[in-house]
Design a protein around this nucleic acid. Sequence first.
RNA 1: GGAGAGAUGGCUGAGCGGUUGAAAGCACCGGUCUUGAAAACCGGCAAGGUGGCAACACCUUCCAGAGUUCGAAUCUCUGUCUCUCCGCCA
Length: 422
Amino acid sequence: MHNINFIRDNPIIFDNFMKQRGELPCSKNIIKIDEDKRNTQTILQNLLAERNKLSKEIGILKSQNKDSEVENILKRVEKIKEETSNLKELEKIKEDELHAILSRLPNIPSSTTPQGKNENDNILYREWGDKSDFQFKPKRHYEIGENLNLMNFDLASKLSGSRFVVLKGMLSKLERAIAQFMLDKHTDENGYTEMYVPFLVKNDSLFGTGQLPKFGEDLFTAGENHWLIPTAEVPLTNLVRDKILQSNNLPMRVTSYTPCFRSEAGAAGQDTRGMLRQHQFSKVELVSIVEPQHSENELERMLESAESILKDLNIHYRVMTLCSGDMGFSANKTYDIEVWLPGENNYREISSCSNCGEFQARRMNAKYKSKDKNIFVHTLNGSGLAVGRTLIAILENYQTEDGNVIIPEVLRKYLNNQSLLI
RNA sequence: GGAGAGAUGGCUGAGCGGUUGAAAGCACCGGUCUUGAAAACCGGCAAGGUGGCAACACCUUCCAGAGUUCGAAUCUCUGUCUCUCCGCCA
């Protein structure tokens, strides 16, 4: 959500920012509605002030038993009531109009976010490790999984339709081991506190993080008033909704392992094979709530926390800085970690770390006490990492010629010290 | 699912038709004292908005939404959530 004062004071700059994000100029319209709203408010408030004053007089007169004087005042008050009820309606209309526009505009890109239209304009930030060297043609993850009889898409589609998977035996265990390794790393070494959170949330929470009102199509609903979370970012970030935090509680770093549900409405026909893009997947999420002056550093710290997982797994990856046109709605800056998949011969997103600045905090009304003022916090979120895609990366990078998979060192303690998948 | 109680500022908690935006305490901030800290004492301290260069004035908000009234934290209705007891249950 944007600060209306900023738009009022910098309409051209604002329109320019929105253009970078693929939006049409709209400041003129916003300012017009805002002016109408304020003009209405000024008139309304003067009338209300008069009414309040007269009501107080009535109180005093009644206590003095001067009923005859009360009569006259009542006439005037009645007239005011008529006028105010219309003005109140108009004010509400203008407020709703303004809110409807502002709540659908994406965040302003940070000054360090490269300008660009789409993923082709993203910029390489850094790389780590090397592409694994195979003496044979590496298979894709679903070939490995299906050949081992541990990954089954037909069964899943019988149960639930397309874009689901059933994992069996060691592959199912491997998924659990990956998640536990990530959680242990983030809680023991990276300073995050583990949380167990609801997987169903209500509208307000999704509005707070920015999925609603614009992107309801990408979500699954559950019953009348609930939605399935598309990411743990939603419950974790909303922990501070409608709060005024004490500054000694910041930074607040939390992590959670949850399933994520996405309708993938805009992805028809994309990545239909394998378990790369599913309606359901699990993810270990990182969320930081920080004071504004620390959010830029916090993004680097969060990125490093996410990277530490792939480093420990010893899998090659690169980090991309997303351009203004490719960033998510709430972000002012985003790094994507793209992991190397030798079977696919391609890099694939395995984590996305974003600084949302005060954008979500404004939507959520999340502040902290600083000296004498209450200031909006900054919120950040990142995957640390997507568990399903990490499983894919391990299968493809650690596969052997005979179709088995070597278990990465750091995961063995979670798997009875086994060194091979089967 | 049945019966009852409740929701007030960062927190605890008074108030139950008019001068209450709200007592008191804690927390926090400023000061006095102290070599420093603590304690003690003094002072400050809800949020959002409108108008104004400003000082400041005004409006709205005591879970949410409707209503009664000249006037609502206080009365009525609806919803949401919390707690207690009973039932059921992983």
